[in-house]
Write a protein that binds this DNA or RNA. Structure first.
Length: 509
RNA sequence: GAGCCGGUAGCUCAGUCGGCAGAGCAACGGACUUUUAAUCCGUGGGUCGCGGGUUCGACUCCCGCCCGGCUCACCA
C-alpha cells in the first residue's frame, strides 16, 4: 500500500499489483479521493462548443497560445507511454477527452507517481490547459492529477470491447464502459421515456402511481407472480396491468391520467418478452378509440422526432415510415383476406374453425377455447406480416373483456392494436363502462378459465363496484416501452434495451 | 418444457485425425517528450464451463449436469 497526499491534505492510497492477491481483504475506503472540479467531460468540451464553429475555434487556437484551464474526471481507458510523456483518454458516458502528461510540466516526482500508481481502468481527475495536438485533437495538458478510484480488474479489450452477451447482461457496467452502442441505446431509452412524459404532461395528463402489489391480478390475460404478505395474512399478486386502477381514477374525476411503470408476467423469456417490462398506460374521459388513433400518431411523431430526429427509420434493414396517417385494417377483413372465411365463420362455426386451426398446425388446436382459436389463427396468418406501422381495429368481443361493444356491431368491440415490424406495440379501446355488462364479461372469462384458458382474466368485484358509481365514456391505451425502444434503437432483442434483463442465477459453473 | 448451436488466458478468438495449450490486445520489465488500435525489445499468464466414462494418452470421443444464444411452445 502506498500513501500519497497533496497540499490540501487530501489523501490517495494506491495499491500495487502484488497486494491484490486473491482472497486477500482489500480496504477500498481509504483510496477514495475527493476531486474538486467539473466532473463531466461535457463540461470540459463546453469550452469548445461555446465557439461558433470548429473552424473558428481552430483558428483561435492556432493564433492564441493561452488555452483554457479545465478540470475533468473520468475513467482512464487508454494509456500510451512515450518515456518522458504520456497520452491517455478519460471517458465517461458522454464521451472521451485526451490527456497529455509531460515530465517537465508535472515535475519528476508527480510524473513518477503517475507512472507507478495509475493504470488504465482507474478513475482519475486532472487539471490543466486545453490545447490541440499536431493531429488536431483537443487535449488537456495535465498540471495536476488525482487518483479517485482504483480498478482492481483489467478493462475489457480496447478494440473489440465485450461481445459475450452473458457478460454484457450480467455485468452491464462493463458493457457500458466498453461498448458505445450500449451507452447510446440506454440514453435513447431514457430520452424516449422522458419525451413520452413531456408529451402526456403537455396534453393535460396527470401522472399517477397505482399498486404494484394487488389482491387481484386482473386487467390483462396473463399468469401473475404470487407473493404473500405476512401482516395482512393474504396472497398478493404483482400486477400484470394497472388498467383497472387507472379506470377507478377516471371514476374519481381525474379525467386524464397515465402511469408509466413495470408490469410483471410469469411467462416465458425470449427476444420480445421479459418477465418485468415497462408500459405506459393512459386514459382519457370523453374520448373514444378513434380519438386515440390520432393521438397515438401524434405521440409517436413527437417521440420519433425528439429522439431519432426523423419519422422514417430503418429497422432490421427495412424501412419504417411513421408519417401519419398510418394504415388501418379491420380485424376480420385481414382474416377474410387470408382465409376467404368471413366473420360469421370465425364467430359461429367453432368446429370449422378448429378444423382450420388443425390444418394450420396450431399446437393444441383440439383443446383450445373458441376465443383462443380465433386469436391463434390471427397470430399465425396475419400478425407477422403487419410491418406497419398500422392499426388493426374492431376486435372480436370474445377477446376483449374490458372493451366497449362496437357501436355498429354487437359481435365486436371498439379496440385497436398498433403493429410495427410484426410486433404488437400498443393496445387501446373505448373502455367498457357498463357495470352490468362488465360483470357478464368477467363471468365469461371465468368460464374460459374453466375450459382450460389459464390466462383468462380474473374477476375484480371492487372494480365493478367502482363502475357502478358511473365512469364517463373513456378511451385508454397501453404502449410497450421496451418494444418501442427496440424499434427506435434498431435492435432485435428486448435484452438490448433492458439494463438488467432476467437471467437464470448462475451457479455450479 | 423441446430441438439446434455455443462456453479455451482479463478481453476478442484459433486449436487439424485423440499425442507438450496458441495468437492479438491487456498485464509486467526496458527504450522513446505530440501519441491516439502508438512503435520497438523482453517476460509472465490456463480448473480448456462442471462431473463422470472410454483410452497408454481427452480441449478433442461418449454420458450427465450448469450457463447462454437461436428456433418452437406460452405471451405483450
Amino acid at each position: 500500500m502506498v500513501r500519497l497526499s497533496d497540499e490540501k491534505g487530501l489523501e490517495i492510497i494506491a495499491i500495487t499489483e502484488e497486494e491484490l492477491k486473491p482472497n486477500e481483504e482489500v480496504c477500498l475506503e481509504g483510496r477514495l479521493g475527493r476531486f474538486e472540479g467539473k466532473l463531466s467531460i461535457l463540461d470540459a468540451r463546453r469550452v469548445e462548443s461555446s465557439r461558433e464553429t470548429i473552424e473558428e475555434l481552430k483558428k483561435e487556437y492556432d493564433l492564441d497560445p493561452n488555452f483554457e484551464e479545465v478540470s475533468v474526471a473520468g475513467r482512464l481507458v487508454s494509456l500510451r507511454s512515450m518515456g518522458k510523456a504520456l497520452f491517455g483518454h478519460l471517458q465517461d458516458a458522454t464521451g472521451r477527452l485526451q490527456i497529455y502528461l509531460k515530465l517537465d510540466v508535472l515535475g519528476e516526482e508527480r510524473f513518477k507517481e503517475f507512472e507507478e500508481f495509475v493504470d488504465t481502468g482507474d478513475l482519475l481527475g486532472v487539471k490543466g490547459r486545453l490545447f490541440r495536438t499536431s493531429t488536431g485533437e483537443l487535449t488537456v495538458e495535465v498540471e495536476d492529477f488525482q487518483l479517485l478510484a482504483k480498478s482492481l480488474h483489467p478493462m475489457p479489450e480496447k478494440w473489440h470491447g465485450i461481445k459475450d452477451v452473458e457478460v454484457r447482461y450480467r455485468q452491464r457496467y462493463l458493457d457500458l464502459i466498453a461498448n458505445e452502442t450500449a451507452r447510446k441505446i440506454f440514453v435513447l431509452r431514457s430520452r424516449a421515456i422522458s419525451e413520452i412524459r413531456r408529451f402526456l404532461d403537455s396534453r393535460g395528463f396527470l401522472e399517477v402511481e397505482t399498486p404494484t402489489l394487488q389482491p387481484v391480478a386482473s386487467g390483462a390475460n396473463a399468469k401473475p407472480f404470487i407473493t404473500y404478505h405476512n401482516y395482512l395474512e393474504q396472497n398478493l399478486y404483482l400486477r400484470i396491468a394497472p388498467e383497472l386502477y387507472l379506470k377507478r381514477l377516471i371514476v374519481g374525476g381525474f379525467n386524464r391520467v397515465y402511469e408509466l411503470g413495470k408490469n410483471f408476467r410469469n411467462e416465458g423469456v425470449d427476444t420480445t418478452h421479459n418477465p418485468e417490462f415497462t408500459m405506459v398506460e393512459f386514459y382519457t374521459a370523453y374520448w373514444d378509440y378513434r380519438d386515440l388513433i390520432k393521438f397515438t400518431e401524434e405521440l409517436l411523431s413527437h417521440v420519433l422526432l425528439s429522439t431519432v430526429g426523423s419519422l422514417k427509420i430503418t429497422y432490421q434493414g427495412r424501412e419504417l415510415d411513421f408519417t401519419p396517417p398510418y394504415k388501418v385494417y379491420r380485424y376480420f377483413d385481414l382474416l377474410e383476406e387470408k382465409t376467404g372465411k368471413n366473420k360469421d365463420f370465425f364467430l359461429r362455426d367453432e368446429q370449422g374453425l378448429r378444423q382450420l386451426a388443425v390444418e394450420l398446425g396450431i399446437p393444441k388446436a383440439q383443446s383450445l377455447t373458441h376465443a383462443k382459436l380465433i386469436d391463434k389463427v390471427f397470430d399465425r396468418l396475419v400478425e407477422d406480416e403487419l410491418w406497419g406501422p398500422c392499426f388493426v381495429i374492431d376486435f372480436p368481443k370474445l377477446l376483449s373483456p374490458l372493451a366497449k361493444t362496437h357501436r355498429e356491431d354487437p359481435d365486436l368491440v371498439e379496440r385497436f392494436e398498433l403493429f410495427v415490424a410484426g410486433k404488437e406495440l400498443a393496445n387501446a379501446y373505448s373502455e367498457l363502462n357498463d357495470p352490468v355488462e362488465q360483470r357478464d364479461r368477467f363471468l365469461q372469462q371465468l368460464r374460459e378459465k374453466e375450459l382450460g384458458d389459464e390466462e383468462a382474466m380474473q374477476m375484480d368485484e371492487d372494480f365493478i363496484t367502482a363502475l357502478e358509481y358511473g365512469m364517463p365514456p373513456t378511451a385508454g391505451e397501453g404502449i410497450g416501452i421496451d418494444r418501442l425502444v427496440m424499434v427506435l434503437a434498431d435492435v432485435d432483442s428486448i435484452r438490448e434495451v433492458i439494463l438488467f434483463p432476467a437471467l437464470r442465477t448462475s451457479h455450479g459453473a
